[in-house]
Amino acid sequence: MDNFIFKVYYLSFAIVLAQTAAGGVLAVAAKNLIHCFLGMVVALIGVAGLYYHLGSPFIALMQVMIYVGAVCVAIAFGLSLTRKAGEEGLKPLTPIALIPVVLPAGMLAATLKGLSHLEKTGIPRKLDESAIGWHLLGKYLFPFEIISVLLTMAVIGAVSVALIRRREQNGNI
C-alpha cells in the first residue's frame, strides 16, 4: 500500500513538471492569443503544484487564488477588450532568439555547477506555516506595509489610466 502511495506521489510530480513545461511552451509559442492564455493558466497551475511539492501548501493556495483566480480573469478581460484580428502570433525569428536560449542555459549551468558539490536532495519537510503570518507582522512589517501601499496605488493608477479618454470626452478632466 505504501509503495502504491509513493508511486502516485512520484507520478504526480512528473505530471506537474510536464504540465508546467507544456503550458509554458504553449503560452509563448501559440499563434492564437486565447491558446496562449490557456497555456499560461495550465503553467500557473503547474507552478502551484511545484510549490506544493516544495512543502508549502499555503503558497500553492495563494498562487491559485492570486494568479489563476484574479490575474487570469483580469488578463482574460484585457484580452477581450484589446483583441484585433491579424495582430497576433510571433515575429519572424531572428538571431536575437539566441538570447533567451543562451542566457538561461548559461545561468542554469552556473547554478548547477555551484550546486554540484552540495548534496542537497531529500523530500522537503512540512513546516508550520502559521509562522508566515507572524513574520509578516514582525520582521517583515515594513515591506508588507509598503506592498499594501503599492497595491493600492497600482489599482488606483490602473483605473485612472484606463479611464483617461473617457474623462477627456466628458470634458471635465
Partner: peptide, 9 residues
C-alpha cells in the same frame, strides 16, 4: 530556468 527562458523568448 525553463520558465524564465520561455518568458524571455
Amino acid at each position: 530556468h525553463l520558465l524564465f527562458g520561455l518568458g524571455l523568448f
